[in-house]
Design a protein around this nucleic acid. Structure first.
Lengths: 241, 241
DNA sequence: GTATGATTAAAACGTTCGTTTAACTCGATC
DNA sequence: GATCGAGTTAAACGAACGTTTTAATCATAC
């Protein structure tokens, strides 16, 4: 403190102001529903400033995604690296991998406060938008991460067919994205007895983790045509009831 | 057959042609991304026909949702009624309830062919669109169904806190919606070894059901601050590892 | 002070959107 | 065969959109 001016709403960089406003509007309205006019208006800057700093609406959307996604996925890689280093050559436990991927996501969102949660919901929405350029963005940013985590999961569950693991990872992604993105939707549908969203986000982590691990460890479905399995297929297949 | 003309693309009702085209476009582009011009053009009808038959874009979207959602949810109620009638007064098994809700969804989608799958993905997308009028539509259509299923679930799992059940139902909804809506998104991200979508939809059901039930039955998370429970609070609270 | 490069501001461009209007077609009804 | 109403068509409306242009502003270096 002293001579340095605090980054208040009025002194923050125009670029960041636009990014923050865009994050909000894109989350609330979706990519197509958001307009540059509303974004720049919310940010308190001129309409042309958006194009001056980011070029186009598409590039602004990319910038919004990249800003936090890059940090998140770097952290995801770092945590996985650290776990694997500690484990030496032995495979990780599935719970460790799940926590490294989904736990990191939620912990970072919590750490970033309301903005983190906004971004969380934006991601949840974005993953269901099949627009061409959005898929390209997601593909480029997620592909290396998912490859690493897939590999770790294959090593952790050698007796489970890879196809099943991939599907279950997909299910876990869905449960997580949706749990965050759709909170208000379903809150409106049914008057369930959940508290405030802010409180919930911290309680959500253990809840979600339990669910994800339960699903991941569930007995494999009785496949009508079983993919030829080399060996050792009969383990960890019992459920409790 | 004979004098009756088959409902081909050219003889079907204008209304239905518009509904089908709208279903496709809304699924592919989202509500905001879709335009009346593209919908009516795909349907091979005049632009004004859309407004003549449905009034507005909003009402067209509602009509698209209602057309199948009504049937789906009626069937969901019917199945649940039938199960509870068979069970007499005893609570249902959780697996029965999950299958009645999510299994009915997937089976109906399979039964309706490609159109069923399109609708499935449309629903998956729609549930993450927090637009005001969409939430109203979903609320009105889903509220009674969810109340019935929630009640059945509470009866089936009397020892589990209701809050946890609701959350896990939420997670299950997410895993399901996303598993369908996001298939292509993630197929692009990672080159996982899944076959064709059409084949997958039938294999998806047992896979998804295993995952959902595994998550539903997972040990409850170790809650740091337990909500005051009237009685019988000490059971099934252990995590397994 | 003046020149310079980066940023902001206001205004307009062309396009596309949802929606409406008005004319038109056509089969059924009397 | 004139009437009428439901359905269809072409054309246009005003608004909102992304984007561009042009001028004004500002700090900084000479």
């Amino acid at each position: 403190m002293g001579a340095i001016i605090e980054p208040t709403e009025d002194t923050r960089d125009t670029r960041e102001r636009i990014l923050d406003a865009a994050e909000n509007v894109f989350m609330a309205c979706g990519y197509d529903g958001a307009s540059m006019r509303q974004i720049t208006s919310d940010a308190g800057v001129n309409l042309a400033a958006g194009h001056y700093h980011f070029g186009s609406k598409e590039d602004l959307f990319k910038a919004v995604l990249y800003r936090r996604l890059r940090i998140l996925n770097q952290e995801r890689l770092r945590v996985l690296d650290e776990l694997e280093a500690k484990a030496g050559g032995t495979p990780l436990k599935p719970s460790q991998i799940v926590d490294a991927f989904f736990g990191t996501l939620l912990r970072m969102a919590i750490a970033h406060g309301p903005r983190g949660q906004t971004f969380l919901r934006l991601i949840g929405r974005t993953l269901t938008e099949p627009s061409e350029f959005i898929r390209t963005v997601l593909s480029k940013e997620f592909a290396p991460i998912l490859e690493r985590y897939k590999a770790a999961m294959f090593r952790a569950l050698p007796e489970v067919p890879k196809e099943e693991i991939v599907w279950r990872f997909h299910f876990m992604l869905g449960a997580t994205s949706y749990a965050i993105a759709g909170v208000d939707t379903l809150r409106l549908v049914t008057d369930w007895e959940t508290g405030e969203v802010e409180d919930d986000l911290e309680r959500l982590l253990p809840r979600l983790m339990s669910f994800l691990l339960g699903g991941l460890r569930a007995p494999l479905p009785a496949t009508p045509i079983q993919v030829p399995q080399p060996r050792g297929n009969g383990r960890n297949r019992r459920k409790k009831s």
